[in-house]
Design a binder for these strands. Sequence first.
DNA 1: CAGTGAGCGAGCTTCCGCTTGACTT
Length: 764
Amino acid sequence: MGENLVIVESPAKARTIGNFLGKDYLIKSSYGHIRDLSKENLGINIQKNFTPEYVIPEDKKQVVRELKKASSDARIIWLASDEDREGEAIAWHLSEVLDLDPEKTRRIVFHEITKDAIDYAIKNPRSINNNLVNAQQARRVLDRLVGFELSPVLWKKVRPALSAGRVQSVAVKLIVDRERAINAFQPESSYRIIGIFIHTDPDGQQSAFRAELSVRPEKKEEARKILEYCSDAIFTVTDVISKPARKSPAPPFTTSTLQQEASRRLGFSVAQTMSIAQKLYENGRITYMRTDSVNLSKTALAAAKQVISEEWGEYYSKTRNFKTKTKGAQEAHEAIRPTYIENRSITATRNEQRLYDLIWKRMISSQMSEALFEKTTVKIDISGRNEQFLASGEVLKFDGFLKVYSETVDSETDENGKGLLPPLKTGDKVIPENIDAIQKFTNPSPRYTEASLVKKLEELGIGRPSTYAPIISTIQKREYIVKQDRPGKKYTYIILSLTGGEISEESKTETYGAEKNKLFPTDIGMLVNDFLVEHFTEILEYNFTADVEKEFDKIAAGNIEWTQMIEKFYKPFHERVQRTTKVSKKPTGERILGNDPQSGKTVSVKIGKFGPMVQIGNAGDTDKPRFASLLKGQSIETISLEEALALFKLPRKVGEFEGSEIIVGVGKFGPYIRHKSVFYSLRRNQDDPLTIENQAAIEIIKAKRDQIQNKTIRKYTEDPDLQILKGRWGPYIRYNKQNYKIPKGIDPDSIDYEACMRIISKKK
DNA sequence: CAGTGAGCGAGCTTCCGCTTGACTT
């Protein structure tokens, strides 16, 4: 005992390694970083050449105590933190804090947790790479400087407790820029001309297929002319080209791709995916879930090959090694995969099983053969015209990896080009059954989901696997962005139809752009973004991180001093901070909408002390100005004069119920209705306080009454204030507006009055 | 619990990237 101490970052990893190393090795975990910059002031001594002031956070003191004891007992200490910038820094902090003797200390790394990899690592130790440590210090110090100097500017100029940072501010900018692009988007329309053609083969067998005209006319008249021409044209098949096509499987999951697929297929939020994956990892079901690597260990490759061959035959197996293309990837781990590939399914909670299944399929399919197709494209001439109809079909010849898994895509897939075409030959005549010209509108880029934002950040090299979920939660906590559903807008489009030689015209209405769980910027988010972009342009640029990463790489290569790099950044940055604090005005986002038709006064919107508001009149006027808050979903950037004026109609009377009037208004906690001095919240994303009618209001009142009744499990005659209620975590006691937990071992259905009172008095 | 919008002004807030628990009214 005590011969060797191995320190890794994660306790689950420590457990696994314990199985591979013998009794002579004690494995302990550092639980990530053990030191960080002090939170007092900057935590950096600028005068002393940016010397970092490191402290051990309160919640790490116990860990450090234990590691100190273990290391002083050990003969050799093996620092086995991850092989990346952060891991190297952890190793260095450990050696400093534990005061390790270099003679007794070995730095080792392994990318996969297999016996071979660990044995190899033990046989090939090295010393701590100080250049890499310095690159990490530069990263840490830069982030602290940016975060702790920018945030106070916002406290002074916008409102307290806001934040800004290298990563979060750019994440917000992505969402703001996208929203503005959507607002500014001008849809253009064109006509897709799609025919259903009938082909008759030599035996008289008829079959129908779809083909689309090679051009899309912009004007309805043009589309109509083409249809008119088609009504007595002759259609001849010209080119028939068949060629084989193949499709390869996607690589196994990284953090980012796992989050994307779990969001699309299982509807999980990014945070939910990570917490479920964490459980799977801790239970030894999957490899580490915070990774940017698509690499697989040799043992995993061999196991996959065996599973695939046994299940579907050897020709379904194809061993592949994937290479990471992601910017800034540090590849300290394997891809995310099942630890034991032969475990097709596991016993766990339903969501754990579903996520495991996804990970299993993705990993297995990545080691399977390509799917083979035959793709056929056909051209159909229209007599006397240059345009052609095009048809394409795809036949699956060999399913390969598709047997298990196919990656989903965000965009709508084209409905053309799927399925089988009839056996067409050059020179065949085909007859149109009907031809439609359908008006189609171009769409702006879609709003981000949590997962698609992560994808974008990863592409830009911003953030790391361990921070994607926290970034999204931070910018929501600061109220820079909101995750919301929004109803779509109705739009009308035209269909011209050629059937039986006659052309008919019809207009149809559809809803477009309904959003579910999408990320929208708030007014404060846009205001802060614009302020930062104006005064700190460089930091808000999408390639800022990529640029500083290049500097960090130079530090890691030993080509520049980290303090020099920081100094070069800090001087102009700090000056900018000071100048902005001194000279810039408080941004309000004010926008003049027009004049109030009643009073003739100016109507404006801006961010007030309590959020976005409309104002009629000005502060200096003889009458005080009138104010109203904007509703959720409204924005100072897009609200119209009419919408703004409508807000002054609240509170208003909606109607009557049970002989008393119903009033609708907007309060501290959002829109409400009041009836017999009881308040009811309006249903989110459903009711609009400006338009809600009496019937809907009555429904809300009745539903709330029902809900209260269902929530009550038990009442007591002894004391009407005492109730047993059904809550989020099961039954609980409510007494005089206080809640009490029911201790384990007591049956909530049969708990009597005395027992309740005992629990209550005990708590007090 | 169901607005407010203002000229006195304490002391607080904040970054990014490694890691898990503890425990919910």
